[in-house]
């Protein structure tokens, strides 16, 4: 192995971009070096990151999940309403996770049993969940419970004087660690790669393709629901109209993180880096101060296109 495996090139590129953006920020703005910037980067992007980890599994398997944003919004308003009607927050959260997982499993079963394209099934799922969110409640609802106002806010790890790692950031890191383990060290994880690389071969090699596919969407549903829970910690409220299009941010983070949109190649830590890159761009533009925040979108768009071209170039070279 004297040549590096081409599948690590996008990952290396992602790491480089991330470091470059951070260094750029430090050079331009003295305050950027504060550990608080990094802590906030994780905390503010926790729910996006968790959703993106779910999307990583789906994209690795060669699929797509468009229901993410709607599920997060639904879970948010669901938890808020349940707590408002007197349910214990922890019970509401567990219930929400179950609902999200079941919803994902149903989407996976539709894809599997009727051999439907994931794009359409999850598009339907998106409309369904967005609608359900409004059925639960028409407008946003603040969560008022000591678990939210005190417990969660106290669940922090002090890092430096007056800088704490928030609970949301811990959730993100835990998710990334667990998901990485699943990808690398479980048969389920390896089957996801195999299906994404060549579904037909995987079937002929005896991979349980059907069960794995349902599992992938159930897992994505679980992660979306978890992202929904984390969003309530962050927002301290639920809102049926929120997070429209968040799934697209998640997909962008996954692709920028070095996962092949066609499936079969990718890494969960890459996705984390992708999310951090998106966050860094946002932070840089906030620090800059007089640029419109829409410039974030433009920068992400350009970066995304660059990465897709890079992947194409590598794929082309791999074949030659």
């Amino acid at each position: 192995m004297n040549r590096i495996n081409p599948k690590y090139i996008p990952l290396a590129a992602t790491a480089l971009v991330m470091i470059a953006l951070y260094v750029l920020g430090c050079v331009l703005y003295p305050n950027f070096t504060s550990p608080r910037v990094i802590v906030n980067l994780f905390g503010d992007n926790a729910f996006l990151g968790i959703a993106a980890v779910g999307a990583t599994f789906v994209i690795l398997s060669g699929g797509i999940d468009l229901s993410v944003g709607a599920v997060i919004a639904f879970i948010g308003i669901f938890i808020a309403s349940m707590i408002a009607s007197g349910m214990q927050p922890l019970v509401a959260i567990v219930l929400a996770l179950v609902v999200g997982t079941v919803f994902g499993a149903v989407q996976g079963s539709l894809i599997r049993v009727f051999d439907l394209p994931p794009f359409l099934v999850t598009l339907g799922g998106m409309f369904f969940m967005r609608g359900m969110a409004f059925v639960v409640r028409q407008e946003s609802l603040a969560i008022k419970h000591s678990f939210y106002q005190q417990t969660i806010r106290q669940l922090v790890i002090p890092l430096a004087p007056r800088v704490n790692i928030p609970f949301t950031a811990m959730c993100l890191i835990a998710v990334v660690v667990v998901a990485t383990y699943v990808c690398v060290y479980t048969r389920f994880g390896r089957n996801v790669y195999a299906i994404g690389s060549s579904e037909n071969s995987a079937l002929l090699m005896g991979v349980p393709v059907g069960g794995t596919k349902i599992g992938i969407y159930a897992l994505a549903g679980f992660f979306s629901a978890l992202a929904g829970c984390v969003s309530t910690f962050y927002m301290q409220s639920g809102n049926p109209a929120s997070f429209v299009g968040l799934e697209l941010d998640a997909i962008a983070a996954v692709v920028v993180g070095g996962t092949l949109l066609t499936g079969g190649v990718g890494f969960v830590p890459g996705t984390l880096m992708g999310v951090l890159i998106l966050g860094l761009i946002q932070t840089l533009i906030t620090f800059q101060g007089n640029l419109n925040t829409w410039w974030t979108r433009i920068a992400i768009g350009v970066l995304l296109l660059l990465f897709i071209v890079l992947q194409k170039a590598i794929a082309g070279r791999g074949r030659a």
Binding site: K7, R187, R190, N191, Y193, A194, G196, S197, S198, S201, A202, M205, G206, V207, G264, V265
Partner: peptide, 13 residues
């Protein structure tokens, strides 16, 4: 599976 290693292809599943 083209994207996996030779070893993993032998042992997959």
């Amino acid at each position: 599976i083209p994207h996996l290693s030779v070893a993993e292809n032998i042992c997959l599943g």
